[in-house]
Design a binder for these strands. Sequence first.
DNA 1: CCCCCAAGCTAACCGCCGTTAGGCGACGAC
DNA 2: GTCGTCGCCTAACGGCGGTTAGCTTGGGGG
Lengths: 218, 218
Amino acid sequence: MSEPASESSAQRAAEPIATRRMGRGRREEIVHAAARTFARDGYAAVGMRDVAEAVGIRGASLYHHFGSKEEILYAICLTVTQEPNELNLPLLDAPGTPAQRVAALVRGHLEHLHRRRVEHLVGLHELAALTPEHRAVVDDHRRYYQRRVRDVVAAGVRAGEFDVPDARLAAFAICDALNGISNWFHDDGELGLEAVVVGYVDLVVGRMLGAGRTGATA
Amino acid sequence: MSEPASESSAQRAAEPIATRRMGRGRREEIVHAAARTFARDGYAAVGMRDVAEAVGIRGASLYHHFGSKEEILYAICLTVTQEPNELNLPLLDAPGTPAQRVAALVRGHLEHLHRRRVEHLVGLHELAALTPEHRAVVDDHRRYYQRRVRDVVAAGVRAGEFDVPDARLAAFAICDALNGISNWFHDDGELGLEAVVVGYVDLVVGRMLGAGRTGATA
DNA sequence: CCCCCAAGCTAACCGCCGTTAGGCGACGAC
DNA sequence: GTCGTCGCCTAACGGCGGTTAGCTTGGGGG
């Protein structure tokens, strides 16, 4: 939806990023490889040459796809803020009770967290390295997500389905608990993704929000 | 060199004699100043000269107190992992029901989070910059804390006071929700610390752990 | 009274890393 | 065919920043 018109693309040629369709797959490849490296060693400890090596090219060649190192980080951060907004938030607009919709959001959030695991690790920890403008965009996306969560919680409270004194606090607790998962979840751990999804839907919807008595969590 | 630069002489004159005698407190002063700077600009973007300027000395002089920049970061990380272990975990050994003990831990945790706010911001986000050995120590402290939380949750479940299917998941959710607070809490916000403490004790102990029915949370 | 050490300073090094300049082969369009 | 341009290359710059070396000073213990 939101197409951030970066001024840096104007200096390069009369061809903005949006029309560069050739390198689209390449861009995603670079972003993903960079995310993996950043997640393992930290953004600051990884050089452009390292990122380039991860995709089999030379460091300077990266500048044919991205204007700067920070732009790569920005792309990573967008996939963990903008993408959930586009994929998960529609679940809150789907038909059903607030409990059902929150449950669907929790599941969708965790599946996205799992699918883009390395990107989330980077996007949660390396925000300080972003340009102030990019940081503002990312923060806006995240704030909007939290606000939508808060709104659906408040709606559930008004409908008598949820029972929490403060929808704001509950929304914060929910979002923090969900996002924190990416810090400890491992594919090879004792807990499978589905077990975590079921457990967190129960914890969040059934217990924290107090919707267990209506039995509408499934 | 008979006449030093005006700037350094001004700094020297601005520092009373008290600075000279503080051999022990100087480290803490540096750590706190560094934490504030790291929290605002990010560890990588802050140079030793910046940290030094924050305490009124020159960059090279920092090496009389710390062996490296990473050692300062390590000290910060210890105050947000080792210190909670020493201050908060004893609350779990105090007399009382599991619900009361968890409630006390939540309060203690949030108060420490507030007292060492900048240190927590750094300690949560800059772990990647630590030496592998230091990183291991910090991770050990954090794992131990989480394990103690899990154990008291499990104890409450065995005592019939809590009602959660998986103590591990509940402990993760609790710790993540608590630590996440430092990312959004502001002293000048609408929510005061005490309101957050009360709200989270209710959310975590009363609702997530299901101890509301026994009325033992206070 | 003298010596030593803690704590600070200036100067400088040096290696890393983001970034730029300019060239070269391949390939699709005309 | 030829032309442009896309993607990649090599070479190199520029400087930032952590770290070291060596000096000065002031205060406290012997």
